[in-house]
Write a protein that binds this DNA or RNA. Structure first.
Lengths: 335, 335
DNA sequence: ACCCTTTTGCAATACGTTTTGCATACGATG
DNA sequence: CATCGTATGCAAAACGTATTGCAAAAGGGT
């Protein structure tokens, strides 16, 4: 019920004894302003607690100091971590972060992007797997910066940030090799997905680098689920000789592998070592706690934010970049 | 690079052969419009894919069709679930959802609210524990609807939505009682927190309702952590006679309890039943999968959204409401 | 005193809506 | 035909900022 209206730029100008023009230029830096008046204006801005109205500014400039994170499922704990990373960088700069969850279909994504672009978001971090070229184009055409978490690098369609799945998996396998194991089973998820492909590649690479021959019969595929892990692990453990370690393409599969090992009356890590991938919350809570590879979600978020800020300040003209962040092996008690 | 600019309300008016005024009124419904012209206008709106510019509208009306969720830690999986619930209701209505994570201190919250209110968010869902009256007041004074997840009900400060911790815990204890157990230990977290207090109350209530005498020596307190669970469970299991079941105040404590039971060479659920609270992701992945109480985070989100929508349409004048949602017992294999 | 550079002011315009009081056209009802 | 209620149009005023070309002023250096 406070009567006094918020201060506007005109109030600041009057109080500081300068023109609106000058105040605006002090704030935007688009024209040189002498240090003296600059100081005076900034002081008055403080006194009146003046903050430009985002709507008016948006109307005039077409930007909004807001960045959107578009994901396929907020519920996936990876995304909130990313969001936290975005905030780390963007919040201090005065940006607002919106999270948009879309089901994995193009229409939802279309609608969400329309909304966001109408609102003139300055940047979009796109983490939807079903995104297509037209979506990329919609974003860049609207003048927003784009950072993607997947897809092919294309100079028209913004930067890409991703974690080094192959390297991470190679680290995990190398760790198991260093523990003295040689016969190492790999329980993959769907090999037609990017993670499936890249992680398998890491497994192969680590073996090669270590001089261990790749044995096709030690690799099984299935869904990225606990059930998939149970089945895959049983198949491998039934081999003769049985593998000494089971490297799994994600943590859910590893949980299933633990189940399978237990069902066979064996013990982890004594009889067989198990590793996962992703480092979901549950990984440290299992018994034994699971050795796994931590996806640097928060750091990915930070990196996305920095790339967006760079694009925003440097203007639109620059080639696309791809940043690959290292995954980190977390050694626990399952190996 | 498309030359054609976006359609404005003037274009729609021209194409439909009516005035700007009429178009606006068709869209807002603030004046009666004949069905015939209404249809014509709406058709043109479709054809031109006209959507009012949010900045311009915001500038004029002081609202933004946006709702903010302010949380203390995006990383806590409860909040993303809530966010999903908000989206379920708000997204279809054209609202944008922003998530703001603030550290648990008043300055961060102050800054975040300033930002959000500057942007004229229509509603704020406040899930920060450190929020104080001045924060509530800032929100309502700015004309935004407020829904809180904690605190005391106050007609000036919006509605409250929360889950029925006491009832949920009572359900869990009743479940254990129905399994034939009578000597039931309670491993609490910090009893000075709201959850600690309410959940203990549920434990006591269930015993009373079942006609089992409350035994103070069966209740221990500690932090809401795995380590707290280990310690508390050991203390209770060392009693003579030992309890037949351990009811834990949250899932982390329950994980610790499972550890302790295992360390003593006992088996869950054969020798002792264990229950948790919260239904974190890990709960279903443990072995045995944990019987626990599911916090209806998504439904809480939906409810918050509905309350905000109601306030938005019905105007500001109404008393505060408190909605208490039932918790849901999830029976798994640990009991 | 002169010129040059840097700093500031002016005044106007554009951004795209919503809202309004008043006036007018239109039908239908009595 | 008079009248009344309902639909529409008109024109203009906000909303608060950013941007601008031009001109004036203020300094600084020679």
């Amino acid at each position: 019920m406070s009567k006094e209206n918020r201060a506007g730029i005109a109030d600041v100008a009057a109080r500081a004894g300068v023109s609106i023009t000058t105040v605006s230029h002090v704030l935007s830096g688009r024209r040189p302003v002498s240090d003296k008046t600059k100081a005076k204006v900034l002081r008055v801005v403080q006194e009146l607690d003046y903050r430009p109205d985002p709507s008016a500014r948006g109307l005039r400039t077409g930007r909004s100091e807001a960045v959107a994170l578009v994901v396929s499922d907020v519920t996936n704990p990876f995304y909130p971590q990313m969001a936290a990373g975005l905030q780390d960088v963007l919040q201090p700069q005065g940006f607002l972060i919106s999270i948009c969850s879309v089901r994995e279909n193009s229409e939802d994504l279309d609608a969400a992007l329309r909304h966001l672009l109408d609102r003139k978001v300055d940047g979009v971090v796109l983490a939807s797997l079903t995104a297509q070229e037209r979506h990329y184009a919609a974003i860049t055409d609207a003048g927003a910066s784009l950072v993607r978490l997947s897809g092919e690098l294309d100079p028209r369609f913004g930067d890409i940030v991703r974690a080094d799945d192959t390297g991470g998996m190679a680290d995990a396998v190398t760790h198991v090799l260093e523990r003295g194991n040689r016969r190492i089973g790999f329980v993959n998820g769907d090999p037609d997905t990017a993670p499936g492909r890249l992680r398998l590649a890491g497994y192969e690479r680590a073996l090669r680098d270590f001089g261990v021959e790749f044995d096709e019969s030690l690799v099984v595929s299935g869904p990225f689920t606990r059930a998939g892990g149970v089945e895959g692990a049983h198949a491998l453990l039934a081999l003769d000789p049985a593998p000494e370690a089971l490297v799994c393409a994600n943590d859910l599969i590893a949980v299933g592998a633990l189940d399978a090992v237990r069902e066979r009356g064996l013990s982890v890590p004594r009889d067989v070592a198990v590793t996962g991938f992703d480092d979901i919350e549950a990984a440290s809570l299992l018994s034994p706690p699971l050795t796994t590879v931590h996806n640097p979600a928060r750091e990915i978020g930070r990196t996305c934010a920095r790339l967006i800020l760079e694009r925003l300040s440097e203007g639109p003209a620059q080639g696309a970049r791809e940043v690959v962040l290292p995954q980190k092996l977390i050694v626990r008690e399952s190996t």
